[in-house]
Design a protein around this nucleic acid. Structure first.
Length: 453
RNA sequence: GCGGCUAUAGCUUAAUGGUAAAGCAUCGGGUUGUGGUCCCGACGAUAAGGGUUCGAUUCCCUUUAGUCGCCCCA
């Protein structure tokens, strides 16, 4: 607070100033910012989003994936059943919404698969031509402290194929993703694959795994010992250096699968090879949830300094639909982390900053000219010519300055005289040459010049 | 939920226990309807709260936020 009393004889103006300052300060004190772990996607970045989602739509529609939208909140029960009530995810990492009458009841969706599986059941999609291939784009939420690549609100493009148990479907999903990333211009990545087999096989394997770790128990950190009890598979991808060494000598899940599961996995890896998808088997790639079966995969970066950073992950989840109360339904899915792909695109040096460049600046002088200018802008827009404009300004100089800063090639100038003549001045911003053309011919004249350029 | 680091204008940075500086960006002007260079001007900040001190943006504490990591990872 300003100390008004200290200074004698303030003029009213001064008092007003002091009050304004105090007001500003109070306002600043509780300045509103975006909620923790969320971010505004500014136009500059949004170009990358459009690039990704539009390319994806093009490819996915071509492969007859159909776009679907499910609500961004669902009944909490859906995830309790789908993900597992006792998991950390459900226990402490979801955004809960209080319903007025019944207390907490809804949650913001933490992932896409459960919602889509729910919709699959609710709308009887099992009677659609099989397999049912769907995709969705949108925000997902997790309640945790933000860190690199992990936000409270993030965005995914998620695809799911329901109703096919064939291993070739696993391959198809990875292949389409690979084609998409290639189309985006990404090169520096590899697909890591592994098989989790069937739950029963996994259970047997986990016994072996526990034995192995118990034999090496001294080498494990306290956290990993704890993990060994609660979530033994996850010890395999512990980041602790000693744990990694123990993991390297651990029995491999793929060596302890049934014959049919092994065949499934071999089929997948063979076919990935035939299709020239860059992949490697990572026996330490695991999932924390029970509904996964057979194939799991992640697209990870190979760029120096970011090796192993995953930007897309997926797998087969033959167990989920059943868990949600439906019949056994084989399914494969994957989620593309859009923020992470944007990051990859930038890191691989793909520059999109020049799209949306306006070709023309519309400058005007006077109210009559503003009307003419607005009508001309409508025509330009209909002709698909992107423009920038300064209808809100009055001087010529500021408008041309703006045109220059925007880097447009041409300016269209309309003043009093042109309004009376029905003409318009076309100025080439580089050479400074000007020509007078009829307003009626503006679009044609521009198209001529823009194409000649 | 836990821990490390950080916090000065829209952005990038400077400085000081004693009036907070600059570049970029934005807006305006440099005689009446014409940009780029140049010149002038305007706007604009010590995250919040408390403590130590004659005096704190600077030192200390708390909170908040950011960031990186742990747990977890859908």
């Amino acid at each position: 607070m300003p100390k008004i009393t200290k200074k004698p004889k303030l003029t009213e103006e001064q008092i007003q100033e002091e009050l304004d300052a105090a007001f500003d300060k109070a306002n600043k004190k509780d300045q509103i910012s975006s909620p923790r772990g969320t971010q505004d996607i500014l136009p500059h970045d949004h170009k990358y989003w459009e690039y990704i989602t539009e390319s994806a739509r093009l490819i996915l529609r071509g492969w007859y994936f159909q776009e679907i939208q499910t609500p961004i909140f669902e009944e909490k029960k859906l995830y309790e059943r789908g993900v597992g009530q006792e998991t950390d995810i459900v226990q402490k990492e979801m955004f809960e919404l209080k319903s007025r009458s019944r207390g907490t009841h809804y949650v913001l969706r933490p992932e896409a698969t459960a919602g889509i599986a729910r919709a699959y059941l609710e709308h009887g999609m099992r009677s659609w031509p099989r397999p049912v291939k769907l995709f969705t784009v949108g925000p997902f939420f997790r309640y945790e402290r933000p860190q690199a690549g992990r936000f409270r609100q993030h965005h995914q493009l998620s695809l799911e194929v329901l109703g096919s148990a064939a291993p070739v479907t696993d391959v198809e999903v990875m292949y389409v993703l690979h084609l998409l990333f290639k189309r985006l211009g990404l090169e520096d990545y590899v697909v890591q694959v592994n098989s989790l087999g069937l739950p029963a096989e996994r259970k047997e394997y986990i016994k072996l795994l526990k034995d192995h770790y118990r034999r090496n128990i001294r080498k494990l950190s306290r956290e990993d010992k704890e993990r060994l009890k609660r979530n033994p598979l996850r010890v395999l991808d512990s980041k602790d250096e000693k744990a990694i060494r123990v993991a390297n000598t651990a029995p491999r899940l793929i060596d302890h699968l049934s014959e049919t599961s092994k065949k499934h996995f071999e089929y997948v890896t063979n076919m990935l090879g035939e299709l020239e998808v860059p992949f490697e088997v990572n026996p330490r790639l695991v999932r924390g949830l029970d509904y996964y079966t057979h194939t799991v995969f992640e697209f990870v970066s190979r760029t120096a300094g970011e090796q192993g950073v995953s930007f897309t992950s997926g797998g087969r989840y033959d167990g989920l639909v059943r868990q949600l109360g439906g019949r056994d339904t084989a399914a494969v899915g994957a989620g593309i982390g859009i923020e992470r792909v944007v990051d990859r695109i930038k890191k691989e040096g793909i520059d999109l900053t020049l799209t949306d460049q306006p070709l023309l600046y519309v400058a005007q002088l006077g109210d009559r000219a503003k009307v003419v200018a607005l009508k001309l802008m409508r025509k330009l827009n209909e002709a698909g010519i992107p423009f920038a404009e300064g209808v809100d300004r009055d001087g010529m100089q500021p408008q041309l300055k703006a045109a220059d800063r925007l880097g447009v090639g041409w300016a269209a100038i309309i003043g009093q005289k042109e309004v009376l003549d029905g003409t318009i001045i076309l100025r080439n911003m580089e050479s400074g040459m000007q020509e007078v053309v009829d307003q009626a011919n503006l679009v044609e004249e521009l198209q001529k010049r823009l194409h000649l350029e």
